[in-house]
Amino acid sequence: MKKIGSAFAYYLGVTMCNIKMALLTIVEYPSNILGWVISNPIQFLLGFATIKFVVEQFGGINGWSYGQLAFLYGISVLSHAFSMIFFVQGWFMGFFVIEGEFDRFLTRPLSVLYQFFFTNINVFGFTDLIPGILVFLYGCAKTGFSFTASNMVGIMALLIGATLIRGGIYILLGTTSFWTKSANDFGQFVQEIFDKTTMYPLSMYPEAMQLILTFLIPIGWVSFYPVSELMGIETAFSAGGMGVWITLGVGIVTMIAAGLVFRIGLRRYESAGN
């Protein structure tokens, strides 16, 4: 226990140092900041405005009211934002494989995956948090979701789980580069799929696709199932009030699986000839 504690303190110390360096790097390139702070939130708020338009036209989506949709959308954007902060590097794993960029991580006494994500921690990701929080709070107000202690803990478990699911999938996709030896540029593509399947009720989609996104790729657990339960909406799954915890569990399992596959992939790492 003491050993785990000191290991945690150690990684925390290194992480703080990495965050400081990330902030210093931003200061070096101040012109980038404006773009991020303005364009990212606007993109998501526009997306939300589209939902409002659809709901006003049709009176709801698959039995979801406007407030419930806002809640779902908010959770989706929040978990997206956290995954952008901590795991967006996964999108560029192929580049690291091909250019031999893992070399310097391998010669240091730290987990390679940890260094990969935290050396370039993306503090800009917080700009996506802003629209996420706004829409989420709006949804809470509309649906009367109250901030009791157990609700708060549940939302935290949900967000952590959802972020881990997204991050784990980024890693799994990025890791294919160890086998293909090419830089698969899947980032935008994957984000689009995540957006389309986690911002709106999954029940909109054909049943076959729902099955795939529940069992094969656990995207349904990022937002749809746990939020349905919190909102009291019936789904094919009844999680017995444990929806958010299942999400957390699925997130942890996905991340562990991703870590194991990464380890296997790393054994195939060949650096780069000079």
Binding site: V14, C17, M21, L24, T25, E28, Y29, R104
Partner: peptide
């Protein structure tokens, strides 16, 4: 190749290594 952070002052890279 370099293990130093291209964008920052040299001492910042050393500081990270000091922690690591």
């Amino acid at each position: 190749r370099t293990q130093l952070n291209w964008d920052l002052r040299l001492e910042e890279s050393f500081e990270l290594l000091r922690h690591i």
